[in-house]
Amino acid sequence: MSAVMLYLLLGTVLAVAGTVRMLLVRDLLARLIAMNVVGIGSLVILLALGARGGADDATDPVLSALVITGLVITVAFTGFGAVLIRRIEGPRPSDRDGGDRG
């Protein structure tokens, strides 16, 4: 099996595992991390597709552009998600004097 098919398979496995984990876990942070795993998985699939397509083993420029954008967007969402998680699970403004955790 060529390297491309291997990466393709790897990416798919990563994406599926990440999705299942993300959809079923209760804890928010774990879910956020699983989201990143799915992100990486799908980007690997894209790279594999890109590589397969390129004539002289250079990946297809369009797909690599897609991968970079995807990466940036996933990072943005992860940052924003982290802020939200901290707010949700952070101390409530009303009982700032060390009340029980949220």
Binding site: A15, V38, S42, L46
Partner: peptide, 19 residues
């Protein structure tokens, strides 16, 4: 979370079409 999952699927789909 749902938005990200949706867009990732979209991304893969788009990638496939491009490839």
């Amino acid at each position: 979370f749902i938005a990200v999952l949706g867009s990732l699927l979209l991304l893969v789909g788009v990638g496939l079409i491009v490839s």
